[in-house]
């Protein structure tokens, strides 16, 4: 799925959150959005998903306008999957129910056997088959992450949005999940504020600072940025990088 954002602006009251964001993403591409806390990363993802409406700008998904001043395609019609920071697994449903709910409510009706087949394929892929009858609150954090991924991917979305879903995982587990993300054959936007993630994913990186897209490119290309804010931020990140690798 291709994605094209043109001059996206968002403000909460009088506070600007996003300023003239322009971005394009080709089918199957992986983009990491990097930025400090409060820079508007989550808001940008929510706007792409249709959960929030921008004040200005245009969003085009697979050649179709999803958002402009006159049109708003609701989230359920955008063919987008999203994993939230808190995962948002429904606590009153079992793992199976969490994963299959979207399939059951698709516009194109699928029969129960097919639903089960699809669910089993996904859960086997993520190694959570034995948890199907359990409630999310009884699972460990890593298991919950897998369930959230399975729930998002079972609908085979054209675009997957990941809002810092692995921020509270330990390094080993995070490494495993990042490998998994890399292996997915879909367009992905991954939001993070940790340099480890961009080095591990080695994908195109967009640097979002104070609601502005300061730089975009491969990690090694970012060094040549002319933006002073981006330079300052990258300087901070290299400090973090040293600390992480030294320890």
């Amino acid at each position: 799925m291709d994605l094209y954002l043109e001059k996206i602006n968002k403000r909460y009251g009088k506070t600007p959150v996003l300023n003239d964001i322009n971005l394009s993403l080709k089918d199957g591409e992986l983009l990491t959005i990097l930025g400090p806390s409060g820079s508007g990363k989550t808001t940008l993802l929510r706007i792409i998903a249709g959960l929030e409406r921008p004040n200005k700008g245009k969003i085009v998904i697979s050649g179709q306008i999803a958002n402009n001043p006159d049109i708003l395609i609701p989230p359920q019609r955008r063919d987008i999957g999203m994993i939230f920071q808190n995962l948002a697994l429904w606590p009153h449903m079992t793992v199976y129910e969490n994963i299959s709910l979207g399939l059951r409510n698709r516009k194109k009706k699928i029969n129960n056997n097919d639903i089960n087949k699809i669910v089993f394929q996904v859960v086997e892929r993520f190694g959570i088959k034995r948890y199907l009858d359990r409630y999310p609150t009884t699972l460990s954090m890593g298991e919950r992450q897998r369930v959230a991924l399975a729930r998002a991917l079972v609908l085979d979305p054209g675009l997957l949005l990941l809002d810092e879903p692995f921020s509270h995982l330990d390094w080993n587990l995070k490494d495993e999940f990042l490998d998994l993300i890399k292996s997915l054959n879909t367009t992905i936007i991954y939001v993070t504020h940790q340099v480890f993630d961009i080095l591990r994913l080695n994908s195109k990186v967009a640097l979002l600072i104070d609601g502005k897209l300061e730089a975009i490119g491969k990690p090694e290309e970012l060094i040549n940025t002319t933006s002073s804010k981006a330079k300052d931020f990258l300087r901070c990140l290299s400090l973090y990088k040293d600390r992480n690798f030294n320890s």
Binding site: A49, L51, P75, Q76, G81, F84, W90, L101, G102
Partner: peptide
């Protein structure tokens, strides 16, 4: 986010209310 996850799982606003909000 529970409701938003429902919307992104192709549920309508009413179905989100019925399947997610009401049981909770």
């Amino acid at each position: 986010e529970f409701e938003e996850a429902g919307l992104l799982s192709h549920l309508t606003q009413f179905k989100v209310f019925r399947h997610i909000v009401c049981p909770l």
